[in-house]
């Protein structure tokens, strides 16, 4: 490990010691953050999988039904029937904070009342069923959207955080430790050199007096 390029003085020693203390504390905090994020992540990803499985099977069914139901109508008829949607997805799109990661939080304020955008005579009744089914799935899809995005953002943040923790643990903290011990040994050496020099000088003075 390389040590930092600093002058071996008491001033630097003091500075480095306080830097080391900060680094150690930061490392501990980041590690705790990482633990908590991983805990949340593993909870959320299970939820994500559950929702995803549900939504995918329901939606595939609905879409298949829809494809069958509309196979008999011509393209222009279809487009006419769906050209003016009667309802909107009403939802509040907020922002939630999980371990200082800003993730979306969606609350669906109004779920559909099952109104069709077309007259019943226009399309087959199977189309009505499938459209209703899909409208119902949309609420669940919003929940899935929230969870899935949260999981994706947490995954990125966990990875980033892991890098920070590792950089502190394996680079900065050993570097600081090594530099500190280098400065200490250098200072001790200087002190020993000063003592021996004094002793030597004293000896020389005494020798001169004795002559």
């Amino acid at each position: 490990m390389t040590r930092l390029n600093v002058n071996p003085t008491r001033m630097e020693l003091k500075k480095l010691k306080s830097r080391l203390a900060t680094a150690v504390r930061g490392h501990k905090l980041l590690k705790d953050k990482s633990d908590e994020m991983i805990r949340r992540f593993s909870m959320l990803i299970k939820e994500n999988k559950r929702l995803r499985d549900e939504v995918e099977s329901e939606l595939s069914d609905g879409l298949k039904q829809f494809a069958f139901a509309t196979a008999l109508s011509s393209k222009s008829e279809m487009e006419k029937a769906f050209s003016m949607p009667r309802k909107h997805v009403d939802a509040d799109f907020g922002i939630k904070n999980i371990m200082s990661v800003e993730v979306p939080s969606i609350t669906v304020t109004e779920s559909g009342d099952g109104e069709m955008p077309y007259a019943y005579a226009e399309l087959t009744s199977e189309a009505d069923y499938s459209v209703k089914k899909i409208s119902k799935v949309i609420d669940k899809l919003m929940l899935l959207a929230e969870v899935e995005k949260t999981v994706a953002m947490l995954a990125i943040e966990i990875e980033r955080n892991k890098r920070r923790v590792n950089a502190l643990e394996y680079v900065l903290i050993p570097q600081l430790g090594e530099t500190i011990s280098y400065i200490k040994s250098k200072l001790d050496e200087n002190e020993r050199a000063a003592t021996t020099r004094l002793m030597k000088v004293k000896g020389m003075i005494e020798e001169r007096k004795a002559q």
């Binding site: 829809f66 279809m78 769906f82 949607p85 997805v89 799109f93 559909g112 069709m116």
Partner: peptide, 25 residues
């Protein structure tokens, strides 16, 4: 905050979403 939803997809399947209040492309 109010927001909008959209779907991008192939073919007629997206029309079913349009009926549910999602803008279809």
């Amino acid at each position: 905050m109010k927001g909008k939803t959209a779907i991008i997809g192939r073919g007629d399947g997206v029309l079913a979403f349009k009926a549910g209040g999602v803008d279809a492309y």
